[in-house]
Design a protein around this nucleic acid. Sequence first.
DNA 1: ACAAAAGTGTTTTTTATACACCCATGC
DNA 2: GCATGGGTGTATAAAAAACACTTTTGT
Lengths: 248, 248
Amino acid sequence: MPGRNHKKIAAAVNQQPLADFKVGVDNVIFSVDTAQNRLLVLLVMRQQEPFLNYWSLPGTLVRQGESIEDAAYRILAEKIRVKNLYLEQLYTFGGPKRDPREDCESYGVRYLSVSYFALVRFEEAELIADGVTGIAWYPVKQLPQLAFDHNQILAYGHRRLRNKLEYSPIAFEVLPETFTLNDLYQLYTTVIGEHFSDYSNFRARLLKLGFLSDTGIKVSRGAGRPASLYKFDAEAFAPFKDKPLVFI
Amino acid sequence: MPGRNHKKIAAAVNQQPLADFKVGVDNVIFSVDTAQNRLLVLLVMRQQEPFLNYWSLPGTLVRQGESIEDAAYRILAEKIRVKNLYLEQLYTFGGPKRDPREDCESYGVRYLSVSYFALVRFEEAELIADGVTGIAWYPVKQLPQLAFDHNQILAYGHRRLRNKLEYSPIAFEVLPETFTLNDLYQLYTTVIGEHFSDYSNFRARLLKLGFLSDTGIKVSRGAGRPASLYKFDAEAFAPFKDKPLVFI
DNA sequence: ACAAAAGTGTTTTTTATACACCCATGC
DNA sequence: GCATGGGTGTATAAAAAACACTTTTGT
């Protein structure tokens, strides 16, 4: 029965063994040091093979009963204490051979990495040093060679951060409740670069959009005229949601 | 030794069992029927439990030695023949309990779905009917209830499609090599809705940007003045890459 | 001749850009 | 009083938006 035989073969081809995965989460956690105008990323020193003593993105493997996003929040909370943060899924890297453990220790198990991208407020972020693991904010302009494909993941996260700042109001998730317009401008300058509107125009545009409300409270930063504290008004922003809008 | 004991306990807490995963890929494949001004998505009828006889996104499980992206292309090629397409990773859905198979048949294995989003040219897309599996283009405005969390994935893909059209030149990946400005306009209208510039302004803006070159060739579509065929000039577009740019 | 589709032009309004300048404070 | 940072205004250029109009075809 050639027909039947053919079907069997086709079925066999269609049912090559499925890959078994362990799923890891790697976080690209950014912050902006406005005092020194630097964009920073959180790195930890690896304590085990592979890539022992390499800097890497803080990551973990997903446990039973834990959602991917839970794992992302867990590893973040293990490394850093923050009040405000913005976190979103970045990309899933899953080619075979991206993790050297696939060759040796395992029985054909693949390692897949779901990366998350986070932005936290530098001034209030508290690194959790456990006395063993090295942990540090690194300027993204002076990165060391990282473990695994983490340089690639980081580069992808950096691109996403810039895009998000340009098109979405994520800056306000990481600024304090109230902030000066200069705080906001500095944040944009540090991440995007100096190649956009000057402060005066930036200011005028943002204010005209109408979702920044002046609290009337003034703060003085050393010399100079005191600045007004502004507040992001989520309700006033609502109409702009899902509309193309460029902040820079 | 209380110190050592404490360390042991901490280690135990930190090493709850890892989850074991099977990784699936689900494709949200869109096309635009310009003749009827409809946005379509490709659905297949499930042939097995769970969700037997439910419509679902075309998907597959990742096999040994296969990258995630390879699996996405494989399942796409199994269902449809196309010349041009745009494909990118969408999102990874991985909460526990998103797949009912986790409860019964498996030994604690989790199912994770890496979704991909694709845009293909409707006119030249050829569905591959194998005589068994139902397969169809569904208008996104009249979707049935889908298997798993596929309605959610689809909604997410739809949002991404709109954003991509607004900010990126993906329309040209799915239009034929040469196209009329009206073809382009229809594509935008169908996906985004009628709420953007009229044809005249759309046209003026796109032409001024300078990355559409007139081939000089004219085509006639029934009555009316013949239209010029244009061509996307990737080189002329290069300077706009990575710059905020809004097409609509 | 006339409807239909393509393409051009014009007018008005809104934004962007580049500045110059005024304001309030610390020292 | 003057340097410093905050804030306002203005002149010019560019772009968006609305819409009227011309051109070229099929019937």
